[in-house]
Amino acid sequence: MKKFLAHYLLPHTGNNHRAKLLHNSTLIIIIAVLFSLSIFSMHERRIHPDILGISYSISSQELIELTNKARADSGLPPLSINQSLSTAAQAKANHMFSNNYWAHFAPDGTSPWYFIKNSGYGYVYAGENLAKGFTTSGDTVNAWMNSQSHRDNVLNKNYSDVGFAVVEGKLLGEDTVLVVEMFGSANTPAFAVAPQTQTPITTIVPTTPPENTVQGEQEEKIAEVEVIPTVLPVVPKVMAVVPQNSASFLSSVITKPVIDLQKVSGSIVFIIMLLFIVVLALDFAIIERKKIPRVVGHNIDHIVVIGLFVLLILLEKGGGILGL
């Protein structure tokens, strides 16, 4: 065993002064094995997603809790889950999947506001955050909070409602989970669906706003709503103001396959790459010390490219965000 390891990991006369792992023939075998594993896992994932797949845990409930926690940390009132905004978010997600685009505005020019208006939510202020490729609610909200424009949306004091859609599908050639977060502030009472005992907001907002009000007037009403933070402490630790009949519009994607392909492939690749870096460094150090001439590539070149790839594996979270 010791001889076998030395043969594969260290340069000596028996392997022509080049660790066997770094021989072109060994590299070809490792590449073939990794390629076969990739094809096998892509194939198996489609046939047995319950056994081999990605572990997802994203739900509207967690997203609203994390969003409101971030707002509470900044001294802002919590957002209420709104059914119309959730419907708008769902429609937007479906539109993105069916038209295969990743943007706020569809290729045909359809804006996010179209979906909000279509859902029947009359807004004064509205915003949209998008995310895809994240596996947990925490990673999704963290990504938004680490980006200024998304953070501005989450912490915007003009918003009082929010709606989420968490949808799994194929977008731009890759299987992913798309999260659409629609923010809004209604010119009609958005809190009407919430039980009045959960929030004092309904006591401040007029229940029947005058029809055909102009934009300026609507904004004045919003200004009234913004007085709410002084009232809110009356309801302690309300992270998510969710109406009791909200289950129907709270979407989630929660999967737990037997083998989490993302973690397994990440670990295998990480170990192989680290092994190559160590063997290349040892090979370089030993040969430099012995001053043995060889016809091989520059080990430093290979260490740099593999090292940066390892860094990429560690830094890359595999998700993307968009905010408007």
Partner: peptide, 8 residues
């Protein structure tokens, strides 16, 4: 490719 086989 192997790392992203779960996305493709």
């Amino acid at each position: 490719l192997f790392l992203n086989s779960s996305r493709l």
